[in-house]
Design a protein around this nucleic acid. Structure first.
Lengths: 203, 203
DNA sequence: TTAGACATGTAAACTGTTACATGATTCC
DNA sequence: GGAATCATGTAACAGTTTACATGTCTAA
């Protein structure tokens, strides 16, 4: 069993659901496409980790509702007790930021503004989700506690990244000020600008 | 060419280096094993994006020092101008946190403490790296500016995650207080505890 | 003396993405 | 009329990891 399998067991541990629903719920935990989820569910069902029930629907296609079994819960519990593997982040944005100034300096501001817009959008969506979490699910005793704290985690981190973006924008702006004013600026003005650039690193 | 290829070009854009060195430098940009890097470098060399020079060494194995070509710079520049793909984060810790309380509540505190330790270790290492960045490389004009801002980004985010971990620990602690004191606590005390639990969400 | 850094490569296995396949319903 | 949602599946391909291979030097 791979990590995706345990992620699936985690989601099913709260609510039985279809492969289609799993694909959306997994997004925050361990992103996967339906083409990976369906075959794995079949395999897990054969191994007795999950069971499913056919649900006929009118107007919509029929679906299979999967639930976790006792064996599945045991397997999940054993896996959780192991130390988690190091996290892996793959983000093209980081590569582009890294090389931005060697390749095309003017494009940098646009790239960062688009990043901010995306992050703000994500935060807004999650804020709505957090707002619908009822107070009784915000406590350790609730099975929705894990989801609640993870939603908050993502938002804290995304907001922090927005702050970082704004810091970088400030650095870019200040460097433009220097460039435009170098011809007329006195040494005193220049030093003031240089000092203002490092305002963030002192926080 | 895949994203790893552009990540390699990005690193070579600053400093020519060997496949072995690339493996370490790529860690923050696009993690990859040497078994993936070496064959790709050969392919990129055949396509004229990079060139290499044999360097004989005594005591150590010989190495190939790769540099980016003009064609490589053009390819990188064109790729940077495209919109970055959505970032992908795969983190087993998140799955374990999500399921922690259904499977084994007592283990949660340990898991989070280990997370904090790891994050603090990473931050300390990066702080050292940031400290060695000279002031002239902290400006947009430097080819090390990208690395400098990315180091700061990672540290800001890791520090924010440490705060989040401490918030979760607080929630867990408070729930224990409630559990232990329920038999003797007055309604007033109970309400005070409940209020203290949400202190963080008001920030 | 044993682990880790330096250094490069290949092969097999596994994981993940894209494309192919089908089809009704609802909302703009 | 077209896109999105619901719903499940397979096949081919691309990307990533683990294991196999080899060998020296240095520091704990």
């Amino acid at each position: 069993m791979n990590t995706l399998g345990y992620a699936i067991l985690s989601v099913l541990g709260r609510n039985p659901c279809s492969g289609y629903q799993l694909a959306t719920h997994l997004e925050v935990l361990w992103p996967a496409k339906h083409s990976q989820i369906y075959p794995l569910l079949t395999k897990m069902e054969q191994n007795g980790l999950v069971v499913f029930e056919h649900v006929e629907q009118t107007g919509k296609p029929d679906k299979k509702i999967f639930s976790i079994t006792e064996k599945g819960k045991e397997a999940l519990g054993a896996w959780i007790a192991e130390k988690p593997a190091d996290s892996i982040l793959r983000d093209e944005f980081l590569i582009k930021i890294y090389s931005m100034w060697t390749a095309d300096e003017n494009h940098a501001t646009e790239l960062i503004h688009e990043r901010i817009a995306k992050l703000e959008h994500k935060v807004a969506l999650r804020d709505k989700k957090i707002a619908t979490v009822e107070d009784e699910h915000k406590h350790v005793s609730s099975k929705h506690f894990g989801r609640y704290v993870l939603l908050n985690r993502s938002n804290l981190l995304d907001k922090e990244e927005i702050s970082w973006c704004q810091w970088v924008l400030k650095l870019l702006e200040n460097s433009n000020v220097i460039r435009f004013s170098l011809g007329i600026a006195s040494a005193v003005t220049f030093n003031k600008i240089i000092q203002s650039i490092s305002f963030f690193s002192e926080i």
